[in-house]
Structure formats: structure tokens, C-alpha cells
């Protein structure tokens, strides 16, 4: 008779692991990766793979330097790299993208303790970092299918190259001149993964159906933004299509389904997720309408990340059978 293992109950575990969750999110991003590659050519795909590799390498180095267990296999670094890439224009120079990835993993994530301890979304924060430091390349958008018109090798060139002359344009969020259908499919200028709402919704629904994310956050985010746009349209007497335009342009879709639902940096409670989503919607609206920036999605999520611990604290569950504190005092 062999030796027996003794351990506390429960003696069975579900098959869900952190790694599997990360892989499911990456799987949910595949439609967006595919759409980005179709619209923005091979350079988009190269940038995505490059960012994923740099992020993973940074994670490896950080863990080694900090003498911590190597956490590269949990897939979170790869996911951060991919998410950041999807937030970048396809023609961003690789060295800039690399700095973004290193900033995301080393500064935003690992310096705060690694997975589970960072308070801000690494991909979002790195995007803002790049936007503030290399703003012109970060807002240089190639037109969809530009690579069909570019000269040979021009399809691999970064922003600023002569090969791309005449192939860039502003994002429709700034110009307001794209059709709604184009916006929905993603056939407009913009960041690699942001333009195709269709691809994002396919991935988002996959995550909701497989219960990886709660639908509360995207519904609250998109719902509150729509409501505010609706009121604005009523007040200013514009067209109702502006509401849809606001939802489909810029980074709102990607933000609502993939950034505002990040486990680590958003509230854990059901009520908290709704508050978080509404906060993002309101801030996005305010920044877009009243600030000097054309896009407010990243900033709104980052600002709400900062409030997350407080939202969690004020939306704690009320356990079944718990007595209210006042009642306790009288007993």
C-alpha cells in the first residue's frame, strides 16, 4: 500500500486556468487581428506578432531580474502585447511599438507586482504613453487597403516613409466623413484592431457566451455613451445617426469589450462593473465633446482604473444571513 496524499478539501478543481482564460481572450481577438490584417495589410500582422514577442520577452527579463517565478506561460504578457498592437496604427515604427510594449510590461505591470497587482491597464496606459510621446506617428493613419496601392516593399514601411505618400488620412472620428456601414465593417482609417466593430463584437460575444467576461460592462459603457449622445442630439438638433457614429468610430468598441473588462484593473463586483461602465461612457463623452482630444476612450478607462478599488469597496456584496452593522449594535 502506497503513501497517501492528505490535503484540505475540496479535492477536485475545475479545468479553468488563468492560462486558459488568457488564451480565450486571445482567441476572441482573432477576428479583430484578421480584420486588421485585411484592411491594413501584412504590416499590421507583423506589428501584432512583434508586440506580442516584445511583451513576452520583457516579461521574461523582468521576472529574471526580480528573481520571481517566470510567469510568461500564463499568456497575460502575450495578450497585453496583442491588445497594445491593436491600439496602434499599422505603420507605427517598430522601435516605437517596442518601447510601448516594454513600458506596458515593465513599468505598468511588473513594477507594480506583476499580474493581478497592476492598477492600470498596461495596454491602455502604454497607448497613452505613446500618444503623448510619439504623437504624430501615433496619429498617422493609413487608408484601408493602402497596401494594394503602395509600391513594392512600401507595404512594410513605417510612417514617415515616402512610399506612403498620399496613402494616409485622418480617422473618421476626427473628420466625421465615413459611412456607417464602412465604420461597422471597419473599412476606415484607424488603429489596427479598432476599426472593425463587427470583428470586435464577434469576439466580445464569444467571451460573453463562454462567461469569460460579464456583459454588464460593455452594456453599461456603450449604453451610457449612447444615452448621452442621444441627449446631445436632442439638444443640438443633429441627426440620430450621430449616436451610432459615436459608438462605431474610435476605440470605444475595443475598449468596451476588451479593455473595460480586464479582470485585474476593473471592479470585481457585479454592481461595480456597471458603475465602471457608466463612468467610462460618461468620461468618453465628456472628453470627446469638451476636451481638446478627438478620442477619450483610453483616458476614460485609465481614469476609471484608478477608481476601481473604491468602486469595489463601495459595492461589496451583502452576504446571505449577514446582519446590518446598526442592528448588531443594538443587540
Amino acid at each position: 500500500m502506497g503513501l497517501l496524499t492528505v490535503s484540505p478539501s475540496p479535492h477536485i478543481r475545475s479545468s479553468m486556468t488563468t492560462q486558459r482564460i488568457m488564451m480565450m481572450v486571445i482567441l476572441a481577438l482573432v477576428p479583430s487581428i484578421a480584420a486588421g490584417t485585411v484592411f491594413f495589410g501584412p504590416r499590421a500582422l507583423i506589428l501584432i506578432v512583434f508586440c506580442a514577442l516584445v511583451a513576452m520577452f520583457t516579461e521574461l527579463v523582468c521576472c529574471a531580474l526580480m528573481k520571481k517565478d517566470n510567469t510568461i506561460s500564463d499568456g497575460s504578457a502575450m495578450l497585453t502585447g496583442i491588445l497594445l498592437a491593436l491600439n496602434l496604427p499599422a505603420t507605427l515604427p517598430l522601435w516605437q511599438a517596442a518601447i510601448g510594449c516594454i513600458f506596458a510590461i515593465a513599468v505598468v505591470k511588473q513594477l507594480f507586482g506583476g499580474l493581478g497587482c497592476n492598477f492600470a491597464n498596461p495596454a491602455i496606459t502604454a497607448r497613452i504613453f505613446l500618444l503623448l510621446s510619439v504623437g504624430s506617428d501615433m496619429t498617422s493613419w493609413v487608408k484601408p487597403f493602402y497596401y494594394l496601392d503602395a509600391p513594392a516593399w512600401g507595404i512594410f514601411e513605417a510612417a514617415g516613409s515616402n512610399a506612403l505618400d498620399g496613402l494616409t488620412g485622418a480617422t473618421p472620428l476626427a473628420t466625421g466623413d465615413a459611412g456607417l456601414m464602412e465604420l461597422f465593417i471597419g473599412n476606415v482609417g484607424g488603429s489596427i484592431g479598432e476599426t472593425s466593430a463587427l470583428a470586435i463584437i464577434i469576439g466580445g460575444l464569444f467571451l460573453i457566451i463562454t462567461k469569460v467576461i460579464s456583459p454588464a460592462t460593455p452594456i453599461a459603457y456603450l449604453g451610457s455613451l449612447s444615452a448621452l449622445m442621444f441627449i446631445q442630439v436632442l439638444v443640438t438638433g443633429g441627426e440620430m445617426t450621430e449616436v451610432l457614429y459615436a459608438l462605431l468610430s474610435g476605440g470605444v468598441m475595443l475598449g468596451a469589450f476588451f479593455m473595460a473588462t480586464d479582470y485585474v484593473t476593473t471592479p470585481i463586483t457585479a454592481k461595480g462593473k456597471i458603475i465602471f461602465g457608466i463612468g467610462c461612457g460618461v468620461l468618453t463623452f465628456v472628453i470627446r465633446e469638451f476636451a481638446s482630444m478627438p478620442e477619450g476612450c483610453s483616458f476614460s478607462i485609465l481614469l476609471m482604473n484608478l477608481l476601481t478599488p473604491y468602486i469595489d469597496k463601495f459595492t461589496r456584496t451583502n452576504p446571505v444571513g449577514a446582519r446590518k452593522p446598526e442592528k448588531e449594535a443594538t443587540e
Binding site: 510567469t71 500564463d74 506583476g114 493581478g116 470585481i268 463586483t269 446571505v320 444571513g321
Partner: peptide, 17 residues
């Protein structure tokens, strides 16, 4: 490994702890 704040334990708790 590290807690990723997924909230599965809260949803699973029959008493909402």
C-alpha cells in the same frame, strides 16, 4: 498563482461572500 480578480469565487459562493 496570483489572483487575477476574475470574480469567479464571488459568483460561486452560495452565500455571496
Amino acid at each position: 498563482s496570483a489572483c487575477i480578480h476574475c470574480g469567479r469565487c464571488i459568483s460561486a459562493c452560495p452565500l455571496d461572500l
